[in-house]
Every structure is written in structure tokens, then in C-alpha cells.
Simulated assay, not measured.
Amino acid sequence: MCIAVFLWQAHPLYPFLLLLNRDEYHSRPTKPLGWWEGGEILGGKDELAGGTWLGCTRDGKIAFITNVREVTSIPQAKSRGDLTLRFLESNKNPKEYAEELSKEADQYNGFNLILADITSKSMVYLTNRPKPENFIVMEVTPGMHVLSNASLDSPWPKAQRLGHGFKDLLEKYGEAELPTKEMAEILMTNTIKDDESMLPGIYPSEREHQLSSIFIEADTPLGRYGTRSTCALSVKSSGEVNFYERYLDEDQWKEHTMSCQIKKMEVHG
């Protein structure tokens, strides 16, 4: 289902910084972080449906997605991971892509989608919930934001825990360079769960209790489910991109970091 915390246009060295956990069934085939064919898109790959939960491009586009927690689902719905991929492959800016997507948002199960263009300092948030016909598109304001499985910045307890921890680390390091890998290790491995009284009340309480931690480990009737990877994606003002991933590969945790340079960083007065 995923959870993410990110900083947008609010740090002197980093126009963008993201920490994200991807939660998925362990049996779902996945490729770890890498360059896609053509060498323009960097991200992991869902080998079942072909999309991605998080990716960036050499020209400064970034996209990531989380599912909306809901009881019912659409039979034969389109894959939500395709929404991020199509933006990264397109020549459209975030607002143009959002306008295009509004015409087909009802063909997907509930999603929260963040689209950004670093070079033009543009970021939008899109969701097709609470109602598919009322597609929501809004500009993301500079600052810190948390995205879980409800709307952007919803005060779910685990989202609040993540936000508070992220803010504490930002205050600790001030305007200095940020140790993004260490930040991910500290914040995204948290297994604290909520009391039953704090749960959203969408799923049965036992299931929701399993999902109430930032880092998830759960046994379900459909198999093992939980956090499959943790990512830290940072973009410096110079255009330097660093993408760290810690991922589960056949029950073994592995990690790697990849870097690139955004081709053109526009200067805005």
C-alpha cells in the first residue's frame, strides 16, 4: 500500500527529498531499482503489470503512488503503477497530465498520485477518491508532506509518527547535507503499531492492526505481505539525483544507490 514522507521546495540544498516504503505481497514479481530500457527512467518495476510505484527521469520528472484503503474494488481495473510510468514517459507537465488522466480516473481503484517536475518547480497531487467522478487535482505547497493510504496529509497515526520523526531529523541537521540513507534506516523501519481505538476502521481490526506500522510484516490468507523495499530519493539544487533502495530479494535484504544528473535545471527568479 506504501507510505511516503517528502520535502518540497523547503530546504536550501534539496528542492526535493523523499522517503518511501513499498508494501506488497512477497510473491509479486518485482525488479529492483534500475535504469529502464532507453536509459531515461530510473525506478523499480512491477513485473506483473509492468508499471512502477516510484520513478524519476533524467529531465527532472518524478512520480510516485500509493493505494487508497477501501473495502470494495473494481473488477478488471487498470494497473495503478501504469499512471506513474505514463507520466515519466510523456512530454506533458504535471498539470497537463492530470487533465488527461481526469478522463479515465474512474477506471482505476483508489489511488494517490504525486507528479513533479523539478526544473519548473511544479508538483501536483491527484486522487480519484472519495468518488471517482470527483477527480481531485491540487498543487502541492512547499514544505513537508506525508502520504499514506488516505488523502495527502491525512492525520493517520502512523503518518503522524513518520512526519514527526522526519521533522525532528530535519531540525537536527539544519541546513547541512542530509544523510538520506541513514534517515530512511531510522524512520522507515519503525514497526510500532497502533492501539485498536486509533485504527481508521475500514478493514477488520486485526488486519488494520497489522497495517498500522510504518514498516509492515504480515501473514494473510493470500500469503506473506509487507514492506518489500525502502527508498530515499533526493535532488540537490545542482540537479544531482541520488536514489537509494533497500529491497527484499528472496528473503534477503539487499541495498544499492544510483545517481544521475538532471539534464537542465532552470533558474527562476
Results as ranks from 00 to 15, higher is better:
Pro12Lys: 07
Lys121Asp: 00
Asn190Glu: 15
Thr66Tyr: 00
Thr257Met: 15
Leu33Phe: 04
Glu171Pro: 03
Phe6Arg: 02
Gly38Cys: 11
Gln9Ser: 09
Asp168Ser: 10
Glu208Val: 12
Lys92Arg: 13
Ser73Cys: 07
Leu85Gln: 12
Phe166Thr: 01
Lys172Asp: 08
Leu20Pro: 11
Gln210Ser: 09
Ile3Trp: 01
Glu182Cys: 00
Ile41Val: 13
Lys263Met: 10
Glu245Thr: 04
Phe64Met: 00
Ser120Gly: 02
Ala116Trp: 00
Ala63Cys: 05
Lys167Ser: 12
Leu48Cys: 03
Tyr125Ala: 01
Ala150His: 14
Tyr203His: 11
Gly201Val: 09
Leu147Glu: 02
His11Phe: 06
Leu83Asp: 02
Ser213His: 02
Glu206His: 11
Ala10His: 11
Pro155Asp: 10
Gly43Glu: 06
His256Val: 05
Val146Gly: 01
Ala98Pro: 01
Thr180Val: 11
Gln9Lys: 14
Ser151Phe: 14
Thr72Trp: 07
Ile192Met: 15
Tyr14Cys: 01
Tyr108His: 07
Tyr247Pro: 01
Ile262Met: 03
Ile62Thr: 01
Ser120Ala: 06
Lys103Ile: 04
Ser259Pro: 03
His164Cys: 12
Leu42Pro: 11
Thr30Met: 10
Lys78Cys: 09
Val5Arg: 05
Leu170Ile: 12
Leu178Trp: 11
Asn67Lys: 10
Ala10Lys: 12
His11Pro: 01
Tyr225Ala: 01
Gly60His: 00
Ile65Cys: 00
Pro142Gln: 05
Ala77Asp: 08
Gly39Phe: 07
Cys231Ser: 13
Phe111Leu: 09
Pro32Asn: 10
Lys264His: 09
Thr220Asn: 12
Leu113Asn: 06
Thr220Arg: 11
Leu222Asp: 13
Thr84Ala: 15
Ser197Gly: 02
Phe166Pro: 01
Thr220Trp: 11
Thr57Leu: 04
Thr52Arg: 10
Tyr173His: 15
Gly163Lys: 15
Lys92Thr: 07
Lys121Trp: 00
Gln76Glu: 15
His268Thr: 10
Gly239Asp: 01
Arg58Cys: 01
Ser205Tyr: 07
Met138Ser: 15
His209Val: 04
Ile3Pro: 04
Glu133Trp: 14
Gly223Cys: 09
Leu83Gln: 11
Ser213Trp: 03
Phe215Ser: 12
Pro200Asp: 09
Leu233Trp: 02
Ile136Asp: 09
Lys158Glu: 12
Lys61Thr: 06
Gly174Trp: 08
Thr189Ala: 13
Gly43Gln: 07
Asn67Ile: 05
Tyr247Thr: 03
